[in-house]
Simulated scan of single mutants.
Amino acid sequence: MFGRLLLARHAAAVTSRKLPPVTGSAPPGQSTPRRRGWAAITAGRLYYGGRIGAGALHAHYAAQLLIGEGLVLRGADGAEHAMSAALIPANTPHAIAGGTADGLLALIDPAQTGRLRPRQAAGTAVGSAACWRIDARPPAHRDLPTLAALVDELVGTPPRPPTHPGLCQALRIIDETLPGPVRLAAVAAAAHLSESRLSHVFREELGLPFRPYVLWARLRAALSALSCGASLTEAAHAAGFADAAHMTRTVRTMMGDAPSALAAGVHWITPAQQHRSSIDSRFVQASRPVGAPGSLT
C-alpha cells in the first residue's frame, strides 16, 4: 500500500520553521527553552514529534512525511487542502497553512525513497497539495518507534542494522574521523575494501551513498551541538563544516530552515537512546497554541 525506504544510524532535519535542543541544560545565564517536542536523527532521516506550526511556501532537499489532526497544506498552485497525513516529494514547494498541536514529521533523504512517487489524481493541478494526501491516520502513540515504523511501512522495507564486517568497520572509522575530512578512499582502505565495493555496501545496507551518509552524520553533530548551547561557529567546527555560513547553507538546503531555528526547544534523542526510548507527550509543552513561537513547521 505504501512504498520503500531504509534506516541506519545518526542524522537529522526538519521542514519549514523550528526544531530543537537535546537533553543538556542551558548554558550559564540562559534559561532552559520550553520544549515543544522531541527529535532524532538517523542515517538519511530526521524524526520529530510535537507541535507543528504554520510556515510560508518553501522547498528542501529531503522528502517529508507529515501526520496530525487538522493539518492544512498549500502547494505552488495556491490552493489549500485539509488532510491528516501527507507525503511531500523532495524539492517540492509547499506551505503548512494550518498546523497541529501534536503531530509527527519525518524528513527522508531522496536516496532512500526509491519507489515512492507522488500520486497525481485525475483532474488535480500540477503542484497541488492534493497530490500529497496519503491514507494514514494519526497513531495513538506519537513516539519515535511508532514514527520510524510508519516510515518503514511507507517505503516498504524495514530498517536493519549493518551486517557486513567491512561496513561496520567503515562506520566506526567515520565516527572516529569526524569532524575531520572523511574520504571514501581512506575509509575503504582502512576497512580493507575497494572503493566501489564499499560504495555498493553503503547503498545496499544503509540505503544511502557514502557522501550523503557522512553529510547526515555532520548534520546530526551540528544540531546536537547547537541544542546543547554551542554557538553557530562552535557547532560548525564540531561537525566539520568550513564555517557557520557553510553549515547554515547546508542545513537550509537539506531541511528548509536555519540551524539555529532547528535546534531550540526540542528534546533530542541520542543514538544510544534510540533503541530503548519511547518519547511521548511528556516532552511537549501543552501551553503553546499551534503556530506560536517554538513550534515546528
Rank of each mutant, 00 (worst) to 15 (best):
G127F: 09
R137H: 12
A40S: 09
L107V: 13
A26H: 03
A129E: 02
G75C: 11
A121W: 13
T124I: 15
A106M: 01
A59S: 15
T42N: 12
A85R: 04
H94M: 13
I134G: 02
L154V: 00
A129S: 06
V72F: 04
G44D: 11
A26K: 02
R117F: 09
A62K: 01
L87D: 02
R51N: 09
L57F: 09
L87T: 04
A13P: 09
R34K: 15
N91I: 03
G68T: 05
G78T: 04
T15L: 14
L65Y: 13
G24T: 00
C131Q: 15
Q120D: 02
L65R: 14
A140W: 07
T92H: 13
A149E: 05
R133S: 11
T100I: 06
A40G: 03
L87K: 04
S25C: 02
N91Y: 12
A54L: 13
R137Q: 15
A140R: 07
R45L: 15
A82H: 11
V126W: 13
R137K: 13
A39L: 05
I108H: 01
A101L: 03
P118L: 07
L150Y: 00
L87I: 12
R117G: 04
P89F: 07
A76E: 14
I52G: 07
R142V: 05
A40D: 04
A11G: 15
G127A: 11
I96M: 01
E69D: 10
P27Y: 03
L107R: 10
G68Y: 03
A140C: 03
N91R: 13
L147R: 01
Q30T: 12
A63D: 14
L46E: 13
P33R: 05
R115M: 08
P89L: 06
R142G: 06
E80D: 11
G29D: 06
G24E: 04
V72M: 13
T15V: 15
A13I: 11
R74F: 01
P145I: 06
P27V: 06
A62L: 03
I96Q: 01
G103I: 14
P110I: 02
A40N: 08
C131S: 15
A12F: 09
L144K: 01
G127C: 14
